[in-house]
């Protein structure tokens, strides 16, 4: 294969963009699971809220769905994140005073209800028809360059979220979060409002996930029901974070990159197989990724990049 061919370059760009979008989702999940130990089985819901909000707000008017607001993305993305945050806040307020399993069950419910809304309320979301013509930023540039520029935008956002998450990790807020995650009773005993902290982590994570959804909508330029499919979003993002190393923002990004490379590379390979095998191998792929998740959970629970406690800022090691 000629590695300088435009096809290969485009493949690299799409790989970078997609793993960047997944890195955003992974960083969002890390805020919830890595920081606060909250199990979210409804990543697809917050992803879809972000994707559909920005699609509805930015596309031209259409008889098929509620559109025609024509907002620029700099406005639409924050609104999408805010909406996702509000919904996460409501569900968090109800469930987070209870044991973690209740949140897990409720997030399944949120994912289902959002999926049903998108499917049934066609006046709002175009239902099964899907929303086409979502503008991608930098489309004015020549073909490869606009892909490259969008990849740059995604990566810049990953860098910003990474930087913010690292700051949060080292801050008193992040330390409290770890304390609550490891022993909520001890944290409550020293006077931390456990529920409030958990709600904050859950809401922030959901907002970052919505940004991931928005990026994905503008990247594919089309948004359909497949965006609510739990498999591609919820499951893959969980595998990425667990494999990469939950509790470590670098691990979240690395996990997104590695799992996406495995996922897309095996797709390239299996697409060369004869007809019936293409569908078959896609299930084998899910099965193998599932086994990978189990192996990592059991044998390498810390992931590729293990969690590191934040550095003590004022306390130099040699002074001890």
């Amino acid at each position: 294969m000629d590695i300088f061919s435009p096809g290969f370059l485009n493949y690299l760009i799409s790989l970078g963009t997609m793993s960047g979008i997944y890195a955003v989702l992974c960083l969002g999940l890390n805020l919830q699971w890595g920081f606060a130990g909250l199990f979210n089985a409804g990543i697809a819901a917050f992803f879809a809220i972000g994707a559909y909000t920005t699609a509805i707000l930015t596309t031209p008017e259409s008889p098929n769905y509620l559109g025609g607001f024509g907002l620029p993305i700099v406005l639409a993305w924050p609104i999408a994140m805010l909406l996702s945050g509000v919904i996460a806040w409501a569900i968090g307020r109800i469930c987070l005073r209870l044991r973690g399993d209740y949140l897990a069950m409720a997030t399944i419910g949120i994912a289902e209800v959002i999926r049903l809304l998108i499917k049934n309320e066609a006046w709002l979301t175009a239902g099964t028809r899907g929303i086409p013509n979502i503008a991608r930023p930098f489309e004015g540039l020549p073909s490869t360059w606009n892909h490259l520029a969008f990849m740059g935008l995604v990566m810049a956002l990953v860098a910003i979220i990474y930087w913010a998450a690292e700051r949060a990790w080292a801050s008193p807020w992040g330390r409290t979060m770890r304390a609550i995650r490891d022993s909520d009773m001890a944290a409550a005993a020293i006077g931390k409002d456990v529920t409030q902290f958990r709600v904050e982590a859950f809401v922030l994570g959901a907002m970052v996930m919505a940004l991931g959804g928005a990026l994905s909508a503008h990247y594919f330029k089309f948004l359909g029901l497949s965006a609510t499919e739990p498999m591609m979003v919820t499951f893959l993002v969980w595998v990425m974070l667990i494999v990469g190393g939950s509790g470590n923002n670098r691990g979240a990004i690395l996990g997104a990159l590695i799992i996406w490379i495995i996922w897309s590379a095996t797709e390239l390979l299996t697409n060369r197989l004869p007809g019936e095998w293409i569908t078959r191998t896609s299930y084998i792929r899910v099965l193998l990724i599932g086994i990978l998740l189990q192996v990592v959970l059991q044998r390498f629970a810390k992931g590729l990049v293990p969690e590191r406690p934040p550095r003590m800022i004022d306390d130099k090691p040699e002074s001890r």
Binding site: G37, D101, A104, F235, L293, Q294, L297
Partner: peptide, 15 residues
Amino acid sequence: AGIVTVIASFGVMLM
């Protein structure tokens, strides 16, 4: 912790 088992069951679900 129970919640790690939940993740394992999530994986079993898809397997």
